[in-house]
Each structure stands twice: as structure tokens, then as C-alpha cells.
Amino acid sequence: MKPGVGSIVIAVCLAIAGVLTGASLGVDFVTPAQLFGALVDSITQPQPDIISWRLQRVVGAFFVGFCLGIAGVIFQGAFRNPLAEPFLLGSAAGGSLGAALAILLPTAAVSSVGLPVMAFLGAWGATLTVLGISRFAKIDDAAGMLLVGIAVAALLGATRSMTTLVLSDETVSLQAMLSWTLGSLQTPMGATLALFGVLSFALLAVSMFLAKGLDILGFGEPTAQTMGMDVARFLGVALTIGALTTGLAVAWGGVLGFVGLVVPHMVRWWVGERHGPLLVHSALIGGGLLAALDGVSRALIPPSEIPLGLITAFMGAPFFLLLIVRRYR
């Protein structure tokens, strides 16, 4: 299908359907009519209501998926590999280290910033480190950065494991740490949720400026260079924005694998490979998908919550394998 107003309308409808599904599912099933009623009630006579909590959580999940969709497109474009994912440059390892410190090291300083900020700083800091080292080493291609990313991620992963081991005894909950790593929606509410939403849309707007450059990178780095692109600088800017988007998703959603890989890939089949439409549609579809899956995570074995990252992995990994098989057969 050619991207255009029509396809965007469909994507918006799918996103809304995803949010409604996510909000309907849970410990108790709620019909969309009840949802709407609760929404009206919460505006006319505000009172504590689990449906409004659920709605805000699902909208939070939507923005996590939204950011992962954007980040996936940016990373796949910048690394010129449609099987790349947003955690390539150490975001997952860095975010996990930040979260580990927040959960396992309850000092006043760490408590005051809170887990999302720590996770964000970890994820964002890791990628900045990778880009900084790449710059220092005058690495100007994506493959070199990827190697730096692997090394930095290994280092951060080891640091996290060490931290976890050193701090592990009866006084701290390793289960909480594990739970975070497997994906956890931090449930931003009210003003925080609004801020998250504004930031997500702002990042989409900013990433649209990368679209043409990502298209041009498809001709190969030498051709892109002669078409007027400072490839090394563009990669730096694109990956910084990509990492910022990933960091935002990690801060509020933990490490959720495969969403940023699979969603842009499916959207490619649908609207083609131009990065402008790809960004917009991947953001909307990623958001809708994650919102719906959050509902599933709460509804499958109530009242237990299945870690969202397990669900995305159970669904995403077979899909990823399918892609690889298709690609190489």
C-alpha cells in the first residue's frame, strides 16, 4: 500500500484499537462502553478508580512502543540493516545497570532521582559512550560502531552482574531486578504521562528530519557521502536521537526485546521502505501493539503479571527467526 493519508488513518485506528484492547484486558475484563463511562466519570466526579489507572498505564505502554518503533527505524536505517534493533549500542546493558543501581542500592541520592531516570541515564549514557569512543577512534562506519557497542555492552553487563552479585543477600530483592530486566511498565501517570507523550511526539518530529538521510544511506556510505552527506556526522546525530528515543522507552518500559525490530519490519511490507512514512507508521503500530500486549500480560494469569518482555520475546523471537529463514533461503 502506498503511504498517505489513508494509511495513516488505518495506523491511527490500529493504535486506538490496541489501546482499547489493552485497557479492556486485565484482572477483570472491561467493555469499551464501560471504559468510556469510567473516563467520563473520572472527568465529572474524580475518584479513585482502577480503570483510570489502567488507561494511564496502557497509554504509557503505547508511548513505550511508540518510541521503540521510532528507534527501531532509526537504528535499522543507520546501520543499514533491516534486522537491527534499538538496543544495539548498549542501551539495554546501560539501562539495566541504571535500574540495578536504583533497585539494589537504596541510597538517598539514587532514591531521589528514581528508577526511570537512572535507567534512562544508563541507556543514554551507554550509547553516548559508544559514540564518544567511536569518534575518538575516528570510526566513521556503522560496522565499527557496532563492535564498540558490543564491547561497551559487555563491560556494562559485567558491571551489572558484579553489582547484582555483590549486593545480593536477604536485604535486597533480586526478583525485582529480574522483573525489571524482563520488561516492566513504570506506569507514568498524570503530568508525567503527559510529559512522556509530549517527548515521544517531539522525538518523532525530530526524527522526521533524519528520514531523507536514512533513505540516502541506502545507496551505500560512499554514494551518500558524494551526495552531500557527512556520513560520520549524520550517523552520530541519528544514533544520538535513536538512543535518546530508546532511553525514553527503557526508562518507562525496561528492556522490551523485538518490538523495535519486528514492528518496523512489518511496516516495511505495508508502506514501503521510505523512512518518513516508516517512522510515522512504526511509531503508531509499535504503540498499539505494546498497549495491547500489556493487557495480555495482566490478563493471562490474573492476578499475576507476566513480565511484558517475556511476551514480546515469545512473540518476537519466532517472527525474527522466520525473517532470517526467509532472508537466507
Binding site: G26, V27, D28, I50, W53, R54, R57, Q175, S179, T187, R298, L300, I301, P302, P303, S304, E305, I306, P307
Partner: peptide
Amino acid sequence: FSDLRGPKQVTVEGIAA
């Protein structure tokens, strides 16, 4: 939650229920 099935973690929703 003495009879909890699945992962030993819950959300606010589960606690509220």
C-alpha cells in the same frame, strides 16, 4: 495471594482486585 499462579508478581490492578 497465597494461591497465586504464574509469576510471583502483581500489579496495582491485581492488588485492587
